[in-house]
Design a protein around this nucleic acid. Structure first.
Length: 275
DNA sequence: CGTATCTCCTGCAAGC
DNA sequence: TGCTTGCAGGAGATAC
């Protein structure tokens, strides 16, 4: 599910509800997520007041005065605003109570994770392995441009598509948006990253920024199960040009979209439009 | 350091 | 209908 636009959609949906709200209780129903969640998370966040909700890469940050809860949604995680009295669903693993409502984290595949970290997320050194933010982010630097990309790809001999998904270079781009950005830029996903011309890289920068901004505007992409905390689906799936469209006609040239596997992931592209 | 591969888990759809 | 198989949006660990 969640790439940058889905995490950002979640952040924006949560912010107005929980800003300034005090955590009155936390229930960890199932600690067996990607890494075992220990009770420390519960103890540290208890009675804290949320002073901001931020995003770095695909991580969601619940910032309180002396620490923050870091939440990664993995493949299938999502947060839901709901009544405390609402019946708990299968795969609801964590519940955060506020005065009049609660937040529940549901994650069928359990690839998500939680950490409680002392201090301010904006000063957190644990994010240092993460690459650049490709679109505007109110809390973290985002100066993504052609000079950055040219330098970053100079020594990368891997095909451009899996390279775009490398979170050490650019954050937030997962399988769907890597496919879509390459289509918009007219670049073949098999092209080796260091062999792409400057003109094409310029198009790629523009395409990544464009596709992510459009997807944020659309509230993310809902293929199967992405739902925002207010129970609304995204609608960027209506704008997909290649992802999931194997054998369907290209929106530009009508040739059929091809599916290949790269780094154990599905890649979709138009062999005519993407050279 | 860069690259390739494997892995965690459940749900669902396709194929037989 | 019911079974098996493969695949799904992420990314850390490991081996070379």
């Amino acid at each position: 599910m969640p790439e940058l636009p889905e995490v950002e959609t979640t952040r924006r949906a949560l912010l107005p509800h929980i800003l300034g709200q005090k955590i009155t209780n936390i229930n960890l129903y199932n600690p067996n997520l990607r890494w075992k969640v220990d009770g420390t998370v519960i103890k540290q966040a208890y009675q804290q007041t949320i002073c901001d909700v931020q995003r770095r890469a695909k991580y969601l940050i619940f910032q309180a005065s002396n620490g923050f809860l870091l939440s990664h949604l993995g493949m299938s995680g999502h947060w839901k605003l709901t009544d405390k009295s609402a019946e708990r669903l299968k795969h609801d693993h964590l519940q955060i109570d506020f005065d009049d409502f609660c937040l529940r984290y549901n994650d069928s595949r359990r690839f998500g994770s939680f950490q409680w970290i002392e201090g301010q997320a904006t000063n957190h050194t644990g994010f240092s392995h993460l690459g650049i933010e490709p679109i505007e982010n109110p809390n973290f630097p985002y100066d993504f441009d052609i000079d950055f990309l040219k330098k970053a790809l100079k020594n990368r001999k891997t095909p451009i598509k899996p390279t775009l998904m490398n979170q050490k270079i650019i954050v937030g781009v997962g399988n769907i948006y890597a496919n879509e950005a390459l289509f918009l830029a007219g670049i073949n996903p098999k092209k080796l990253a260091h062999r792409i011309s400057k003109a094409k890289l310029e198009k790629l920068v523009e395409a990544i920024i464009c596709v992510l901004n459009q997807a944020v505007k659309a509230g993310g992409t809902t293929l199967k199960d992405f739902i925002n905390p207010n129970n609304k689906t995204g609608y960027f799936q209506l704008s997909l040009n290649v992802y999931g469209r194997e054998k369907e006609p290209c929106h530009k040239c009508q040739q059929s979209i091809q599916k290949i596997i790269q780094a154990q992931r599905a890649t979709f592209y138009c062999p005519t439009c993407q050279k």
